[in-house]
């Protein structure tokens, strides 16, 4: 078996929100990401998927856990060593309107990583590299001197991608890169990401709440709920044969763009809302909304076990339901 590029072990990230209140955004998740693959992370808002992504590349300081990259735990690295490693990790943000500084030209935005790491010798080289990057994402030199507000959402997201590629990273966390975009543009950006992946040998962690898109782009998918990993597996297997009741409900809620199918299919309707992640109770996080919950689910947090080869889930009742 291939060595993982990144190995996340028991990652935890808590935020203190007032006296004695702990928001457990990510509460002990573990998974591996292999070189050249796309690892999808899905879940509803507040499930901790974005926090997980940001903590893995150390934008947030972790509460506990390890992230192994190149045999080293990057959480244990000094500031100086981290700066080196960071060049391998990049991030694409959700909101292309907020993630580009409105006062900078596209040239300066894309060149920012080059400037930070003092990579280009002179402004000519810098400009050439930026134009090369812009062309990589389907834009050109005409766009370089313009400002972000002149671009559409999809174009802005491509600028964000060009910026993330500037340092030739190995691993990119895509934090809901398409959820702020129009449908027609989503496909554009996803295809671009796939294209770049095969061209440049990139590894992605693709965070999203659009499940059909995640299935399409990811090799393997993890499903999070309230800070816990509920299920993880190869994307087609996970979608065709979900093990966890939450995954089942989630998948059945996706509206399918085919009227006959959509109207005749049976939905598992989840009652209520996602509970608060502040000081969560012991036991399975999904218990209050789960139709199959038994007493054991309330007391004992189910373990995350491999039920089929490469297919993990955390539920006491797998096999029974």
């Amino acid at each position: 078996m291939q060595e993982p590029l990144i190995s996340v072990k028991n990652l935890k990230k808590y935020f203190e929100v007032g006296k004695g209140a702990m928001l457990k955004a990510v509460d002990g998740i573990s998974f591996d990401i292999y070189p050249g693959e796309t690892f999808g992370l899905v879940g509803e808002s507040g499930c901790g998927k974005s926090t997980a992504g940001r903590t893995i590349i150390r934008l947030y300081d972790p509460t506990d856990g390890e992230v192994i990259f190149n045999g080293k735990n990057i959480f244990a690295l000094s500031r100086h060593d981290m700066a080196e490693v960071r060049r391998n990790f990049q991030m694409i943000f959700q909101d292309p309107y907020a993630s580009l500084n409105p006062r900078m030209t596209v040239l300066d935005i894309v060149a920012e990583p080059l400037d930070i790491h003092k990579i280009c010798k002179n402004s000519k080289e810098r400009k050439e590299r930026v134009i090369e990057l812009l062309q990589l994402v389907g834009l050109n030199d005409e766009h370089a001197m313009r400002f972000p507000h002149e671009f559409s959402g999809g174009q802005r997201q491509r600028i964000g991608i060009a910026r993330a590629l500037a340092l030739n990273p190995k691993f990119i966390v895509c934090d809901e890169p398409i959820s702020a975009l129009d449908v027609s543009i989503q496909a554009q950006v996803v295809n671009l990401l796939k294209d770049l992946q095969s061209k440049l040998g990139l590894t992605y962690m693709f965070i999203a709440h659009d499940l059909s898109m995640v299935r399409y782009i990811s090799d393997r998918v993890g499903v999070m709920y309230l800070g816990h990993m509920m299920e993880l597996g190869e994307s087609e297997k996970l979608y065709d044969d979900p093990l966890h009741p939450y995954t089942k409900a989630l998948l059945s809620a996706i509206p399918i763009p085919e009227p006959e199918v959509q109207r005749s299919k049976k939905r598992i309707v989840l009652e209520g809302d996602v509970p608060s992640p502040i000081n969560p109770k012991d036991g399975c996080r999904f218990v209050d909304r789960c139709a199959y919950a038994i007493d054991r689910c309330r007391v004992e947090t189910p373990e995350f076990i491999e039920h089929k080869p490469g297919h993990y889930a955390a539920c006491h009742r797998i096999g029974e339901i």
Binding site: L59, Q94, E112
Partner: peptide, 24 residues
């Protein structure tokens, strides 16, 4: 988010202050 983006690119606090916060 653009300050955060800058941080993820490896920028220092001073850099973010100078390039992103002050001009805005």
């Amino acid at each position: 988010e653009y300050s955060l983006a800058s941080e993820s690119l490896g920028a220092t606090k001073g850099w973010i202050l100078k390039k992103h916060i002050f001009p805005n």
